[in-house]
Simulated scan of single mutants.
Amino acid sequence: MNGLPAAEVEHLRKRLRNEHARLRREVADELARSEQGRYLELAGRIHDRGDEAVADLLEDLQIAALDRHVHRVRQVEAALAAIDQGRYGLCRACGVQIGSARLEAEPAAERCIDCQTAVEQGRHAPTL
């Protein structure tokens, strides 16, 4: 078990669910905007090469933003699953308690601060 007080876990579960709902709306909105943009292009807008380059860049940026949103949705879903399985708040790399302050700052944190630092510095975090 994770050792976190039940009230704290419920508070973080609520935050995660709210973020999950917000992210799903943002993904849906982004997809709708993307489809609308494709429709306008197909409707016969005439582009010169410069316009096409800008349009390609904007589409790439939209895809990157969408990819970040989808990645974050997966992180939040993993945290919610960990809550349901009773392993929320435990570092997936070393198994120690992540810590309330870190979870309050980042409810979907998967690693303790030491293991996350190791990953960000290009070192491998320990594995269970």
Rank of each mutant, 00 (worst) to 15 (best):
T127E: 15
E59Q: 11
I83Q: 04
A6R: 10
R74F: 07
S34L: 09
R24T: 09
D114R: 14
L80I: 02
R123A: 10
A7I: 03
C115A: 02
I98D: 00
C91F: 03
H69S: 10
R123D: 08
Q75V: 00
S34G: 14
I113D: 10
A21Y: 04
R102L: 06
A105C: 03
I98M: 03
L128D: 05
R13N: 02
L31M: 09
V76Y: 02
V119L: 12
G3H: 13
E59L: 08
R111P: 00
A93V: 00
G89F: 00
E104R: 15
L23P: 03
R92T: 10
A6N: 06
R13Q: 09
Q62L: 09
A65D: 15
I46L: 14
D48F: 05
L128V: 10
R22C: 06
E59F: 05
V9C: 04
R45A: 07
A55R: 13
G44Y: 04
A118D: 14
V27W: 08
Q116T: 02
H71E: 15
R17M: 09
L66E: 10
A55Q: 12
R25A: 13
N18A: 15
L40N: 13
R102K: 11
A79E: 01
A53Y: 07
H69N: 08
M1D: 12
E8A: 06
A78D: 08
G86I: 06
R68Y: 07
L16D: 05
S100M: 09
E77D: 12
G99E: 02
M1G: 13
S34I: 04
R49F: 11
I98Y: 01
V119K: 08
Q36K: 14
D60L: 15
R123Y: 07
R45Y: 02
A32V: 05
D84K: 01
A65V: 06
I83W: 03
D60I: 05
Q85I: 00
L42F: 08
L40W: 10
L58H: 07
D29A: 13
G37K: 04
R17I: 05
Q85K: 14
D60Y: 14
Q75H: 09
L40S: 12
G3E: 01
A43M: 08
R24F: 11
D51K: 08
V54L: 15
H47C: 01
G86R: 02
V119W: 13
V27S: 05
A43N: 13
I113Q: 12
A78M: 07
E41T: 08
C94D: 02
D51V: 03
V76S: 04
H20K: 12
H71Q: 15
Q116D: 07
G50D: 11
E77N: 01
E26M: 10
I113V: 12
R87K: 11
E30L: 14
G3Y: 08
V27L: 11
